[in-house]
Design a protein around this nucleic acid. Structure first.
Lengths: 218, 218
DNA sequence: ACAATTTTTTAGGTTTGTCTAAATTTTAAT
DNA sequence: ATTAAAATTTAGACAAACCTAAAAAATTGT
């Protein structure tokens, strides 16, 4: 049995590892769990004893296979509840995070299986993030910056790092939204900008842009 | 802010007080919370300090006005979730209690308002128990034993104390189910049995029966 | 009415997850 | 290559909610 608190740590460590930046550091975890670094150290030790994480003092932390399985289960539940709240209860997509943070900890395999079915087996949540399936299989997402050029390889926008109004307006201007299909055309070495094909239209975007937008393979 | 645990105590104390039997005693609470009586004593003291209950040592406990308001909120949430699980996720009515025990603690007024709307403002849960409205107004329920004779006063079955197969079969035999309309015809002093009119048919039932069946005024 | 039983409370302890303050290790800058 | 700064860990405490064992109060049977 994994506690409410452990589930939160697992989910946060998963996300920090997946995002690549600096991996899951004690400070980063503390910030996201809204606790102090010392509390995180304590918790990591306990979770390491329980074989949920691989942890060596001062060296950061990553998930064990079991830890990752459990993290993906929590993420699945979180995202399914978000779909429910938006599609069935008419919440706005930016209102549902806090609620899903609570709902994700309800412990019942059956509940999630039936909720998934009730929602029509959605692939993405209202923020565009992919929903892991029952076996933890998840559509891989990465920042545009890290994609590579390959014949016919299309991507789908799934989210962004910075969601400021300024940025969202820029997206609208270049005709890009969550339903856009994007192909990588060219990487410019000199300033690390990239040429993308967005819904058939060729557009050049800055390095900052490519760091800010998450995509998944289609 | 009222904790998960406090909400459970409130709900249980409410039910014990409403059922009339012996009111909310320390032992009874311990049994329903699955804890020891000593833990209940501790908790009652704390809840008394927080003005959620009226408590005098060795004298049992009852809810303050605020305690009752909070208890009814939890009961409302519990019963709405049960409706959701049965009507929308196709759970059987006898599978949903445990799940609703968890869901009832999700803290959000908006969530419950919208769930209620999504479900079409149901009046009763799948067990036949009445759902309090947003202001805590609840259809009063009592055991048949405690009803009184009055011109045209009809009752609706909402639940039973003992749900053994034997009893359910007996119900079927006398043509009584959750949709039955019942009128009290006569109380027999001698053995405390009662004559009821069930869907237009006159039937005599034992004292044990009248102790076992809960009804609400219609 | 009072002894026996049952119920309830107190006292002292445990676990989980947090905290602050101090110590240690790592990283970065000169 | 040191030293200053930043990140991390340890030590010692605390609050919530539980426990066991023992003491105190209430109830019951004769």
């Amino acid at each position: 049995m994994v506690s409410f608190t452990e589930e939160n740590y697992l989910k946060i460590i998963y996300k920090l590892c997946a995002s690549g930046d600096n991996g899951a550091t004690t400070n980063a975890i503390a910030q996201l769990t809204q606790t102090k670094p010392s509390s995180v150290s304590d918790m990591l030790k306990k979770m390491s004893d329980r074989q949920l994480v691989d942890y060596k003092k001062y060296q950061g932390v990553s998930l064990t296979e079991e830890g990752e399985r459990l993290a993906l289960r929590v993420i699945r539940r979180h995202r399914l509840w978000e779909v429910f709240l938006v599609e069935k209860l008419s919440f706005a997509w930016d209102e549902v995070h806090e609620l899903a943070e609570e709902l994700e900890h309800i412990e019942s395999e059956q509940l999630i299986i039936r909720l998934d079915e009730f929602l029509g087996f959605p692939q993405f949540d209202p923020h565009g993030d992919p929903i892991p399936d029952q076996h933890g299989k998840i559509t891989k997402v990465k920042k545009i910056k890290l994609t590579h050029i390959e014949e016919g390889l299309q991507y789908k926008i799934v989210g962004m790092e910075d969601t400021s109004d300024a940025f969202l307006q820029y997206l609208t201007k270049i005709g890009m939204d969550l339903s856009s299909k994007v192909t990588l055309v060219e990487k410019i070495e000199f300033d690390q900008s990239m040429v993308l094909n967005i819904n058939g239209k060729s557009t050049t975007v800055s390095h900052k842009f490519t760091e800010n937008v998450w995509v998944s393979e289609l």
